[in-house]
């Protein structure tokens, strides 16, 4: 039984005049510990798909099963960590309060959680700044704090919506390595939305390429095991990287003509 299965999901956005087909008949599964990237041009429904998986929007058709339970079940949200495109740290809360938001909402705050928050801060390299406010941090630090907030609830599945796109290149590379190492260490599954081809290649086991209007699965690429064994940073320099990049690039450029 896979950790997550997306079964024939379609989603339409309605307006008074008409409806937009955002997603059409999307199906795939995700195993425990697996990393899948969703790649596609702007407006092809990536964010919509992620919101549906997170249980924030109900799909027009189809269903999401997480650990044999429908994602629409209220309790299931606690098993997923959703990280948005920007950090969305609450500016009036300290970093530590931000990080402990999940446990606070799920009413699981106790001393061990407070210790865990400190531990998380250390893990993302932000030790000692728990009492600062978000506006005192740099963009990269904020993104790491948001990551810590997502990870503290120990989600079974991590949903990442272009989490590195707003960062400078160096910070991005460092965070990619960090996230990848963390996921491998705890054997967690993740679904990453991106439109950066190289990021998708170096992070994932599989890449799902979506085509726009309506969002449909165009193609699925499986990354070779030699790239999976090494860190994203090393994978960018691996001999087989360029060939895969060219292949995905070709398919993706074909989509832009739509």
């Amino acid at each position: 039984m896979p950790l997550l299965s997306v079964n024939q999901v379609s989603h339409h956005y309605y307006s008074k005049k008409d409806y937009t087909k955002a997603l059409e008949n999307i199906s795939f599964t995700l195993e425990q510990g697996e990393f899948i990237s969703i790649l596609g041009p702007s407006g092809c429904g990536k964010t919509t798909l992620l919101s549906i998986v997170a249980g924030l929007i109900n799909p027009t058709r189809g269903e999401i099963i997480l650990d044999e339970v429908s994602a629409a079940e209220p309790g299931n949200k606690a098993h997923m960590g959703y990280m948005l495109q920007q950090d969305y740290l609450f500016p009036w809360k300290t970093i530590k309060e931000n990080i402990m938001l999940g446990p606070k909402i799920n009413k699981t705050i106790d001393n061990s959680i407070k210790e865990r928050a400190d531990q998380m801060l250390e893990e993302v390299g932000l030790q000692g700044i728990g009492d600062s406010y978000p506006d005192e941090l740099s963009g990269g630090m904020r993104q790491r704090a948001a990551l810590a907030r997502t990870l503290i609830t120990e989600p079974k599945l991590l949903l990442l919506d272009e989490p590195f796109s707003a960062l400078d290149f160096q910070t991005k590379l460092r965070l990619e390595d960090f996230v990848s190492q963390l996921l491998k260490q705890y054997n967690k599954a993740a679904l990453l939305v991106t439109h950066d081809i190289s990021e998708a290649i170096v992070m994932s086991d599989r890449i799902i390429l979506l085509k726009p209007r309506p969002g449909e699965i165009k193609q699925v690429f499986r990354m070779p095991p030699e790239l999976r064994k090494i860190s994203p940073f090393q994978a960018r320099q691996h001999p087989s990287f360029q060939a895969i990049f060219d292949e995905v690039w070709k398919e993706m450029s074909a989509l832009e003509k739509y």
Binding site: S51, A54, G55, L56, P74, G75, K77, A78, M80, G81, Y82, L84, Y88, F90, L101, G102, I105, N106, T153, L159
Partner: peptide
Amino acid sequence: YIKVLQSMG
């Protein structure tokens, strides 16, 4: 911001 909170249940 609401999305962040809702995703936490």
